[in-house]
Nucleic acid binder design. Structure first.
Lengths: 139, 139
DNA sequence: AGGTAAATGAGAATGCCTCTCAATCTTGAT
DNA sequence: ATCAAGATTGAGAGGCATTCTCATTTACCT
């Protein structure tokens, strides 16, 4: 009888995050997104569902959700943050320099090497960012 | 009879970059830096050598030097770019979340894995960004 | 239902960075 | 050395993403 949508809301409530109309609209946008939208895009899409959502609330909500571990913030180019739901398994990004397309990938070997390197330097990794920027290999 | 300082200036000149008093001051700052200074820091330090350097020139020069391959731009936190000379061998960064210290490291194995992964996805890597964020391992 | 602290909208404010433009340099050619 | 042509510069205005302020509204516990 549980569904993922209700689950994530309960989890948020359990963390002391109040569920408002606006936050539901923003969460909905993030759940439907297949890209990595910017705050601006999220605002536009959220307003389709709830006309009242403001820019300030989008930024505030994204900050709240990020702190709660529900969303991830990315900074691929220098033109502002891009967001995604943190509900799937961890992955890194490959950005196509020609099209701007963002491809997700994961490598357990790289993850392991990162931890090894950090350990050698006397550190525990809290999180990391790995982005590859490239172009399609010519045939 | 050549020295690295003169070399990099000749190289820049060869690329069509004019060597001005202000650019020399900025290059000097970057050569002396042991940290990863922000534009603001570079401006302050450059002015110690040449009072006339302006903020606009710092940004413009950093953009010119970046395009020329002389400096690297980093975005560790969301609070603005940090720069470093690109004269040493390639490296990635480990950022200490408690102190903000930036530790440089390099792993040929990770580099190789990155290339492999990109190749599997049909891409050639142009450049990449790998940052580890962590804390000192407790004893 | 009622009280209280949290969340919101609108717009002002901030911070980093880029642009504009007239004045001043760098440089290659003379 | 001198010159012309074009690049670079300083100062301040402008731009853009993001955050803040504050009066009003809302979620949520009891």
């Amino acid at each position: 009888m549980t569904n993922p949508t209700q689950d994530s809301e309960s989890e948020l409530r359990a963390e002391g995050v109040r569920i408002t109309r606006q936050r539901l609209a923003i969460l909905h946008v993030l759940r439907e997104a297949t890209d990595h939208p910017r705050a601006e895009d999220i605002l536009a899409r959220a307003r389709l569902q709830d006309q009242s959502v403001s820019q300030a609330t989008v930024y505030r909500t994204l900050a709240v959700l990020e702190k709660a571990g529900t969303v991830l913030r990315n900074e691929f180019d220098g033109t502002g943050a891009r967001f995604e739901l943190a509900d799937r398994t961890h992955h890194d990004h490959l950005i196509d320099l020609d099209t701007g397309a963002v491809i997700e990938f994961h490598s357990a070997r790289i993850e392991r090497l990162q931890a090894e390197i950090a350990a050698e330097l006397g550190y525990d990794i809290e999180w990391h960012r790995l982005e590859l920027y490239g172009r399609k290999t010519p045939d």
